[in-house]
């Protein structure tokens, strides 16, 4: 059952600014595609703010265009299905389109936006539950309680340590495309690199301030052809990634390898390596080792943690194969 709430749909950022002047932090919630918001509203009406602000009428947040210096700007409201089919994106950064095409299901892609995917809430088998289930196990930190069921050490009275996992498919790809987020807030515009955007806290998740929204995502196209993404999920649709790995391989006078994985830790984990001597094999091994060392999978997915950890290296290799790397 849906609770009742106030619904606002500002027509411009200016209108949004005025609206926010009269709202206290925490009393409102932004929504765009609303695929996360509506299900949350239905399952936990008590914990949702009183006002829902739809961003869907903000034309400032729309459109895909090429910028100077080989950069591409994608409006925050661009739907995943639009990204998957956008000619410009397909030509300039096909990996973004291909990744978007495999998120969730067609119905969800028709509503969900790129910014929504970047901001998708972290997931945990104790958080993404009904009120009944939360009562069974006690409410966890992320659900407003005082316990983490996955990290027994973080029990009662400790500072909230939330290990809900990060599940965006697009974030690792955009990170390897050195994406920058264009943000708008009551204090005006600011830019932040995606690399600086996420925080390793399953509750706070990112550095977005109250009242701030993403207006556009800018990516660097110079290495776009050198990036691929592979993910594992038990079904070939619908499911969030159990593990997803993006790889960038750039071999010029030196060799540059970057790996970013999702679905495992509380944030996307980026590993960057470069080597003048082009010892590819050793670099790949180092990337796999670093990935394995940094991965902290917990029992919050269909697949067991050890399996997900092991699969990161497998997906790194699958990506490298796609990128034409030949293991000698």
């Amino acid at each position: 059952m849906m609770p009742s709430f106030a619904y606002e749909r500002p027509r411009s950022l200016e209108e949004l600014g005025k609206l926010l002047e009269n709202l206290e932090a925490g009393s409102f919630l932004f929504s765009a595609g609303a695929t996360d918001v509506i299900s949350g509203l239905k399952s936990h009406p008590q914990s949702y703010p009183k006002t829902l602000i739809s961003l869907t009428a903000l034309s400032e947040l729309k459109g895909v265009r090429l910028l100077e210096k080989n950069r591409l700007s994608i409006g925050a409201l661009t739907k995943l299905s639009e990204i998957a089919e956008n000619a410009l994106i397909l030509k300039q950064a096909a990996v973004v389109a291909q990744t978007a095409a495999k998120i969730a299901s067609p119905q969800i892609r028709n509503r969900a936006t790129i910014a929504g995917n970047i901001l998708v809430n972290n997931r945990c088998s104790y958080f993404n539950q009904s009120r009944h289930n939360r009562l069974v196990h006690q409410f966890c930190f992320k659900a407003g309680g005082d316990i983490c069921h996955l990290i027994p050490a973080a029990r009662e009275g400790h500072s909230p340590l939330c290990r809900a996992r990060f599940v965006s498919d697009l974030a690792p790809v955009l990170l390897l495309l050195r994406a920058t987020l264009q943000l708008w807030g009551p204090d005006g515009y600011r830019k932040i690199s995606l690399e600086d955007f996420y925080t390793p806290d399953g509750i706070r998740r990112n550095n977005l301030k109250s009242g701030e929204i993403i207006t556009a995502i800018e990516t660097d196209l110079s290495c776009a052809k050198n990036v691929t993404y592979e993910k594992l999920r038990i079904r070939n649709t619908l499911d969030f990634p159990s593990v997803g790995v993006a790889v960038m391989l750039n071999v010029t006078e030196s060799m540059e390898l970057a790996v970013c994985y999702t679905g495992v830790n509380t944030h996307p984990v980026l590993i960057k390596l470069s080597d003048d001597r082009k010892n590819g094999k050793a670099m790949i091994q180092a990337a796999c080792d670093q990935a394995k060392k940094s991965a902290q999978p917990l029992r919050q997915d269909h697949f067991p943690p050890s399996y997900r950890k092991e699969m990161i290296a497998v997906l790194i290799h699958q990506n490298l194969q796609k990128l034409g790397w030949k293991n000698d």
Partner: peptide, 21 residues
């Protein structure tokens, strides 16, 4: 099951094969 409670009582987490499978 975790401590007698079903943790995947939804059609997202209880994995019924999709048309792809």
């Amino acid at each position: 099951y975790v401590n007698g409670a079903v943790q995947n009582a939804s059609f997202l987490e209880y994995k019924i094969p999709s048309a792809f499978e």
